[in-house]
Design a protein around this nucleic acid. Structure first.
Lengths: 354, 354
DNA sequence: GCATTGAACTTAAACGTTACAGAACAAGAC
DNA sequence: GTCTTGTTCTGTAACGTTTAAGTTCAATGC
């Protein structure tokens, strides 16, 4: 063991003592240049560097100021979902760019395991993360982690989530977008619809759905998108009760395929148009049509939602929403003044599936 | 303004006062169950929850223990590179899974802007990040941020980087893998080679390269992979000086394409085999061959490196390395006992480009 | 009955930093 | 010469937690 092993890292106080000046002055040299003469500042900085002091560390600063220099992202899925889903990836890209620009870190938090036992919950990464704000993406409105985050007293941003006290909402105009999608199909002459929905609550399962499922939904998108569809149906005097609904277990291509098969098996042979709540499940629906020898859009028209990167490649008509804009707004809210709620708008992009 | 607005968050001390017990006991209730009676502990936990206290916050704990509950990842590229590059994505996926399992956060750090001015560097996210360890991926050995990270006194892991004091190295057997790739081609009867290299230093440019470029390389892969090629050449009595070399500006498909075109333009019409240092540039090389009407592997054989996810789809012969294993080892090093250096092994996967 | 042990809880001192309130001093204004 | 103003630097009290070193007190061994 070398005798000169540094006992612990250089501290602000060590530098101050070595230079014979006060700690405050050293601190100011690093953080508030206007508080001391340029000459002294230069000297302090230089000598500090020589002494091996790299500037105030986070530990003390964090305690004192609460400013961490990074923001957290929490999604209710395994972290790898961030890499897998095409639409989410666009969002992530924008989020990363925003962080890069501002030179702040982006902390990816692992979803807390969904255990039933109530009381003695060990503190999760979410609870101890040293961040200036937390961004939630697509959580159910009743997810208990939200309250835990709000209690931390830092800004909490909720993207595509039901509005909630203490959470700054950033969402797309789901109702308007869905309404536009349905209206688009109605204008093409369709009267008999199928809907492929994303899960409406944490309690998941591939299943047949009813309008009531949406009314009680705890996850935002499906609820609002259904409202949008209904709005368009009503205007065209189509009874929402005649619409066939399938709710996917998860936002995956194969779930969309299964849902489409189920829709067709359900005796809906007069079905001519399908409204899918994401491009991913829409793609799955297209797979199912292909397997059955149905051609799109001749036999069946399909409209997705999201305008995922692959939508253009496969010619999917969809509702575009600016994922990047959501990310930018989220970061702005995380760092800036508290804002109540923001809605970004949508537009239907017509391609070759309608 | 509501009169009962909480002045600041609940603290350990507040709970202690409310219960009429000492702070230590409350702290122990959360962190060291064996230090107090189960009954009291249960009571403390319950009352704390009621009082709105969610357990010890990071600020104080970090200062006291230095334990942050998350690790950082730093790459010398814009953060979005993590999403774009297929091989890196595999690595990220594994890293995420490892973090998920251990319930720790993964902090993505923005690369510090590459400015020339020396002295007054503002503290970057890297310097203030509250993490237990930092993982560097693919940095040049002389990148100044490494020293800054090492000075922080926490474990620093360097993946695919030149070895360096204070940094725990985790790397693939570049020399062995590259040697195997070259040997594979030599066994197929090839004698006239081209090499498409990745950048050898931070100072980048698409250009013709020479063996000397590799000797002075500050980035690890190219240097070692070249050594591996040379080793195979020597054994087969091929003069490395006869090998045509192109160095890419960046690890991108189009750079690989440009490099391949350049190689062919360079008057190397007798060229029959190309060793590419990544699957991405290998793919670009294949693009170039296609454009010129050269068929692979009839006219030209190509071997990549990495076994990126797309390699199988396009039938690229390549050197497989287990990106996931690197991630797992990195996390283990970050959290566990200090290890010196780890090397993961490689294997050639023959597909249809040779 | 006395010493010994151990469990259950408390006291008080860090950990490294920032920010408020002030002290010392020089320069002008009257 | 005194008063004001401003600049530059200092002393010190937080910030919220953990932990080493006690203190108390009841139970056990002899």
């Amino acid at each position: 063991m070398p005798a000169d092993a540094r006992p612990s890292r250089m501290r602000l106080a060590d530098v101050a003592r070595a230079l014979g000046i006060s700690v405050t002055t050293v601190s100011n040299a690093f953080n508030r240049p206007d508080q001391l003469s340029p000459a002294l500042r230069k000297m302090v900085l230089e000598r500090a560097e020589e002494l091996g002091y790299r500037g105030p560390g986070i530990e003390g600063r964090l305690l004192r100021t609460g400013h961490a220099g990074s923001i957290a992202l929490y999604i209710p899925e395994p972290m790898t979902y961030l890499l897998e889903d095409a639409f989410v990836r666009t969002f992530m890209g924008a989020l990363m760019n925003a962080c890069q620009e501002r030179q702040i870190g982006l902390l990816l938090l692992p979803a807390v395991p969904h255990d039933k036992s109530e009381r003695p919950r060990p503190p999760a990464a979410l609870d101890v993360a040293a961040v200036d704000a937390i961004i939630f993406y697509g959580l159910a409105g009743d997810d208990p982690v939200i309250q835990r985050a709000v209690d931390r007293g830092r800004p909490v941003i909720g993207i595509d989530m039901p509005n909630r006290d203490g959470v700054i909402g950033v969402g797309v105009d789901d109702v308007g977008g869905a309404c536009a999608a349905a209206t688009h199909l109605i204008q093409k002459g369709h009267r008999c619809f199928g809907v492929i929905s994303l899960p409406t609550s944490r309690r998941r399962s591939d299943r047949k759905g009813t309008p009531a499922d949406f009314e009680t939904a705890s996850i935002r998108f499906p609820k609002e998108r259904w409202q949008g569809y209904v709005q368009a149906f009503r205007e065209a005097e189509i009874d929402p009760a005649t619409v066939a609904i399938r709710i996917c277990d998860t936002n995956a291509r194969k779930c969309g395929k299964a849902a489409m098969h189920a829709l067709l098996d359900q005796g809906m042979d007069q079905l001519t148009a399908v409204l899918a709540m994401s491009d991913v499940v829409a793609r799955g629906a297209m797979d199912a049509c292909k397997e059955r020898g149905l051609s799109v859009p001749q036999d069946i028209s399909i409209v997705g939602f999201d305008d995922a990167p692959f939508a253009e490649d496969i010619g999917l008509t969809t509702v575009a929403q600016d994922a990047a804009e959501k990310a930018v707004i989220a970061v702005r809210c995380a760092l800036g003044k508290p804002v109540k709620t923001t809605v970004v708008s949508t537009s239907v992009i017509e391609r070759s599936t309608t």
